[in-house]
Simulated scan of single mutants.
Amino acid sequence: MKVLVTGTAGFIGSHVAQRLLERGDEVVGLDNLNDYYDVTLKKARLARFADKPGYTHIHADLADRAAMERTFAEHRPQRVVHLAAQAGVRYAAQNPHVYTSSNVTGFLHILEGCRHHGVEHLVFASTSSVYGANTSMPFSEHKSAEHPLTLYAATKKANEQMAHSYAHLYGIPSTGLRFFTVYGPWGRPDMALFLFTRAILAGEPIRVFNHGKHKRSFTYVDDIVEGVIRTLDKVPPIDERWDSNQPDPATSGVAPYRLFNIGNERPVELLQYIEVLESCLGRKAIMEMLPLQPGDVPDTEADVTDLIQTVGYRPQVSVETGVANFVRWYREYYRV
């Protein structure tokens, strides 16, 4: 089938596009190649598949309404995997307008494209950050996520609500995926594993927030990709209805709409994560211990029961395997 994948120069988007091409799908990739982080890395990701048969690249911004309308009108994708967004929890404090432009206005343009061109299924990226002030573990899609603690999380929560409204009003089958701390080869330079690896190899100190005591459901990128593709193939039935007398955030009483967590069920303490990295690098980290950052939550833990029951998959790559794979890629890519 023909799939529009937004964010194909990004970390997760590039992996998803490559997997779809490998299984024989036609991919229309879209990215604006912004300079939030190293554009050279983004271009290198694209270079892995940009010349493959079945791939078409569009250089455009989600917030450009005319460009998005042209993309849908000219390419008419059957399904959409929307992964492009302004990333980074902390960056929003300095650049809030970028987040609303990309993550809210840009998402509206995706929804409108799906509405007017008969898209069969929209799968879009949300985040575990939407759980915010909720401290009931493990995080379940069936529990409240009404109190996000950062603007980034608030824009993703808005995406979930916008998608539900379009699913209800226009019958667009939509699935939101809440990702939990994704890491792996070709990762983002602003994320912990990348920052730690670079600093340790350079003999520089690493900043360890909350004194390394918080836990995360670190999720390897291949596990995320598998979850994305399986949910893309599992279209929420238009005729299926749930009990609207008992509203459930994970499903709906009135629309073909679902939410799924995609995260490792075994959370790992940050200090343990650093120990695994030290072992893979063969070097000890110099740690600067700091308090928890504003907006950060102490712990995350994914409940993936629904993902297992609906698409038959659970994330399974251990941090030992995943971090080793990242370090191998990092040394090869940066020749260190």
Score class of each variant (00 low, 15 high):
His109Pro: 01
His97Gly: 11
Ala133Tyr: 03
His116Ile: 08
His75Ala: 04
Phe124His: 07
Ser102Ile: 12
His57Lys: 01
Ala87Tyr: 03
Lys43Glu: 12
Lys43Ile: 09
Lys143Phe: 09
Val89Arg: 05
Ala50Asn: 03
Val89Gln: 08
Cys114Arg: 03
Arg79Trp: 01
Pro77Tyr: 07
Ser144Trp: 07
Asn134Val: 09
Val104Asp: 08
Phe72Trp: 04
His75Leu: 12
Ala67Asn: 00
Leu108Asp: 04
Ser129Arg: 04
Ser136Phe: 09
Ser144Asn: 09
Pro96Arg: 11
His142Tyr: 02
Arg45Gln: 02
His109Ile: 07
Asn103Tyr: 04
Ile58Phe: 07
Ala66Phe: 11
His109Val: 06
Asp64Arg: 00
Arg90Ala: 07
Glu112His: 11
Leu41Tyr: 02
Leu122Met: 04
Met68Leu: 13
Ser101Gly: 07
Pro77Lys: 15
Phe72Val: 14
Val130Ala: 05
Gln94Lys: 14
Leu122Arg: 03
Ala47Thr: 05
Leu149Ala: 05
Leu122Tyr: 07
Ala44Arg: 15
Pro53Gln: 10
Ala47Phe: 01
Ser140Cys: 01
Gly106Met: 04
Pro96Val: 08
Ala44Met: 12
Tyr99Asn: 11
Ala47Ser: 09
Val130Gln: 03
Phe72Met: 13
Gly113Ala: 12
Gln78Gly: 15
Ile110Leu: 06
His142Arg: 14
Glu146Met: 14
Thr100Ser: 01
Val98Ile: 13
His82Tyr: 12
Ala92His: 05
Leu149Lys: 10
His57Ile: 00
Ser102Arg: 06
Ala44Asn: 05
Leu151Gly: 14
Phe124Glu: 07
